[in-house]
Design a protein around this nucleic acid. Structure first.
Length: 270
DNA sequence: ACCACGACCTGCACGC
DNA sequence: TGCGTGCAGGTCGTGG
């Protein structure tokens, strides 16, 4: 489900309900996520959520005693419910707030994660190896050029590599490469600086636009209020293999790259 | 040090 | 209608 825009839309949706709220109870219905939810998550009970932030596709709920790190995997979603209905299938985790509202995690495929981290965050192994945030100046041409220098693998795989830049998943990697006119199989080291300038711009643009539109809903993504995102209407290539290119009209090609569906225009992208 | 690939899961669309 | 197959928005850990 979520790439960076969907996670950010989720963050924006839940933040007003969570910031300053006291966690009255943590209910773990099924601990079997990507990593088992550790019982120490109960230490969050009684804590006040100070901030709700995002790093890459991780949501960070900060308290004085530690941070709850949430990841939505491929199929996870968070809702704030008040009142909360009876839990449904795949509702694995609830944070019951003293306001009566409930933050509920639903994740059919269970690739997501919920990790209670009571140590300093800079020692968190999932977080401390991550590359720059794409929507900040830390992601720029100089940094990208340095990261790609001498590498021969396909540019699309590099774009989706969290050490190079975080948050760009399969949808937006396809879209950004299309907008930048770069063939997804281009060898990293062979892309000119001018084209990398363009790529950095397009990555930022497509992510920012998707956030504005409430994210991309393909099947099951909804924001914290249960509403879908509308960016799917602005996708140029993702999910459109065989259909006409919005630029030149020729049929979009679809291949596999790193086991992921890769769609591009053979004419507009070189 | 790099990189490709399998693995983790459920649900859905499709073809027979 | 039912069954098998393949595919899906992520990313860690492995083995080469």
């Amino acid at each position: 489900m979520p790439e960076l825009p969907e996670v950010e839309v989720t963050r924006q949706g839940i933040s007003p309900h969570l910031t300053g709220a006291v966690v009255q109870q943590v209910v773990v219905r099924n601990p079997k996520l990507r990593w088992p939810i550790d019982p120490s998550i109960s230490h969050m009970e009684g804590q006040t959520i100070r901030t709700v932030t995002r790093r890459a596709k991780y949501l960070l709920l900060d308290t004085a005693a530690g941070t709850l790190i949430l990841h939505l995997g491929m199929s996870g979603s968070l809702r704030v419910l008040n009142p909360a209905p009876a839990p449904a299938k795949h509702d694995h985790l609830d944070l019951v707030l003293s306001s009566g509202a409930v933050l509920r995690l639903n994740d059919p495929r269970r690739f997501g994660a919920a990790i209670w981290w009571s140590l300093p965050l800079d020692g968190q192994p999932l977080l401390n190896q991550l590359g720059p945030e794409p929507l900040t100046d830390d992601f720029n041409v100089a940094q990208l050029q340095q990261a790609l220098k001498g590498k021969s693998r396909a540019i699309k795989l590099a774009l989706m590599d969290n050490k190079i830049v975080v948050g760009v998943g399969n949808i937006y990697a396809n879209e950004a490469l299309f907008s930048a006119g770069i063939h997804p199989k281009c060898s990293c080291g062979s892309v000119s600086k001018a084209r990398l300038v363009r790529l950095v711009e397009e990555v930022k643009l497509v992510l920012a636009r998707a956030i504005e539109q409430g994210g991309t809903t393909l099947k099951d993504f909804t924001n914290a209020d249960g509403k879908p995102g509308y960016f799917v209407q602005q996708l140029h290539v993702y999910g459109r293999g065989g259909e006409p290119c919005t630029g030149c009209g020729s049929a979009l090609q679809e291949i596999k790259l790193g086991q992921r569906a890769t769609v591009f225009c053979g004419k507009c992208q070189r």
